[in-house]
Design a protein around this nucleic acid. Structure first.
Lengths: 110, 110
DNA sequence: TCCATTGTTCGTAATATTGCGAACAAAGGT
DNA sequence: ACCTTTGTTCGCAATATTACGAACAATGGA
């Protein structure tokens, strides 16, 4: 079933997907905030972030699509929280990835 | 000197920059390979990756621009290695970021 | 010197990202 | 029923990303 040359694994695709979602300062801010203080409303964010609500909505959608956060309707607002299932997966993937070569390479380059 | 509303810090910008560079399966593969086995030549990569050399060159350039890797001329080839100074910074940033809420939020969201 | 090898750069194209404002939808309160 | 609040969706524009092939540069070897 596999194509290409089995170099790129499903793990590379997964971690790249999470990394891509994290690849914007606004989204990193939101993730950090949520992972620190459980939940927040999107209105709280527009007050401190230098973007309009529609742009924020798009960033939140990206984080949602990547699986890192989830929204819960609490009318008339929406409460955003970390999606802890996927968050844990992302943590594990990054930890595994970052564990490598903490002390530098075996063969020092140059 | 700061503008906006001091929500987005320099750290958010930095980690987002690294995350963005990691936001593609090809680049994650290269980073993993290099962090595992010290160095490699770009020709080694084209052999196993399902992209042509010019595309690979662009991905390597992105990793270089983000500061995660460095190239060293070793004619007629170029030896690519992890840039360990920045790699360490990225590791620290991600570790700090990932450390948060390993066990879940204080206030469980529904 | 000419050729082969290696990798970058250029030109091109398709698609994705980022951002704004306006319009829209959903729900609660009066 | 109407209005307010909240957030999404739409339309638009500018720019970035991803990918390919062709052309180009640099270097070592024949």
């Amino acid at each position: 079933m596999e194509s290409t040359q089995n170099s790129i694994t499903e793990e590379h695709v997964k971690i790249a997907r999470y990394a891509k979602a994290m690849g914007h300062p606004i989204r990193m801010y939101v993730l950090e905030l949520l992972s620190k203080q459980s939940c927040c409303y999107s209105g709280d964010l527009t007050e401190v972030l230098p973007i309009v609500k529609s742009t924020l909505s798009q960033h939140l959608k990206e984080l949602k699509d990547a699986g890192l956060i989830q929204g819960e309707i609490e009318a008339p607002r929406i409460k955003y929280c970390i999606n802890f299932e996927n968050w844990k997966e992302a943590q594990d993937l990054f930890r595994k990835f970052l564990k490598m070569d903490v002390e530098g390479p075996i063969i020092k380059c140059k």
